[in-house]
């Protein structure tokens, strides 16, 4: 699904290398987790894959189903099936959540040459999906993320994911700022979207999210590289020994 080869990235504005050769193969139907200490490059990886400005790819490649995503505009990546759930979802005053969702769904459909979703059909689908995520009608009417609590913002990200039905989902620190109940709700939303045709990359600092979203593969990232790969037990090792233990072991 997503194939990253020797990806090297520096900041555009300063001479600082963030990613120093990342290799990652995520198969359809699998959930991969990337864990790592602060500053290891986890979030940078998610931004570079989704096309945020401010980074310069200095080497390597990233392909979604064989197509080079690094050459695409952010909207083209989205239409190709890539989705990033933001660590800090952006507030957009003046744009209603419903308008935002419908514009996004139909923009992607249009880009793929599919028929746009009618207002009635959209309303039906969005209401059903919102209900599953305990998102009430008021949250749908309000401007995008404006005045939302941390939990509401993250649930809104998952609602967007559910509506856009991407092939490859990247979740950047989705657990940050959530209490246990909110995290469970978000995890349930993610689990409901797990399917054979969809890949997941879950970026997290803590193991606790992975109690709820069970990964197939766990990677440890440090200083811009994947330094260790293993099964779910690797996450437990982080929980028990901290990053220091694992990093000294691979050093």
């Amino acid at each position: 699904m997503l194939s990253i080869k020797n990806l090297a990235v520096k900041l555009e504005e300063e001479d600082k290398q963030i990613l120093k050769g990342v290799d990652l193969e995520i198969e359809a139907g699998k959930v991969h987790a990337i864990m790592g200490p602060n500053g290891s490059g986890k979030s940078t990886l998610s931004y570079v894959l989704s096309g945020k400005d401010g980074y310069e790819v200095t080497g390597g490649s990233a392909a979604l189903e064989g197509a080079d995503v690094l050459e695409m505009e952010p909207e083209e990546r989205a239409a190709a099936g890539l989705f990033l759930a933001f660590q800090y979802p952006v507030e957009i005053p003046g744009v209603g959540n419903m308008t935002f969702l419908r514009t996004a769904v139909n923009a992607q459909r249009k880009a793929r040459g599919e028929e746009e979703m009618s207002a009635a059909e959209f309303l039906k689908v969005v209401r059903a999906r919102a209900k599953e995520l305990k998102i009430d009608a008021d949250m749908l009417k309000r401007p995008v993320n404006v005045g939302f609590s941390g939990g509401e913002k993250k649930r809104n990200e998952i609602l967007q994911m559910a509506m856009l039905e991407p092939k490859m989902c990247i979740l950047d620190e989705t657990d940050s700022g959530l209490d246990v109940d909110a995290m469970k709700l978000v995890a349930e939303g993610v689990n409901a979207l797990r399917s054979e045709g969809r890949g997941f990359l879950v970026i997290t600092h803590y193991q606790r999210l992975l109690d709820h979203i069970k990964p197939d593969v766990v990677h440890i990232m440090a200083d811009g590289r994947i330094v260790k790969t293993g099964g779910p037990e690797l996450a437990l090792e982080v929980e028990n020994n901290g990053y220091a233990g694992i990093l000294s072991e691979v050093a």
């Binding site: 989704s50 096309g51 945020k52 400005d53 505009e73 952010p74 909207e75 990546r77 989205a78 239409a79 989705f83 990033l84 933001f86 979802p89 952006v90 507030e91 957009i92 003046g94 744009v95 308008t99 935002f100 514009t103 996004a104 769904v105 923009a107 992607q108 880009a111 967007q160 856009l164």
Partner: peptide, 19 residues
């Protein structure tokens, strides 16, 4: 906000109009 909209598939022109 513009990047957020584009990351959801809204092209730059329509995203700018929306904002």
């Amino acid at each position: 906000a513009l990047f957020y909209l584009r990351s959801r598939g809204v092209p730059e022109g329509p995203a700018t109009d929306l904002l």
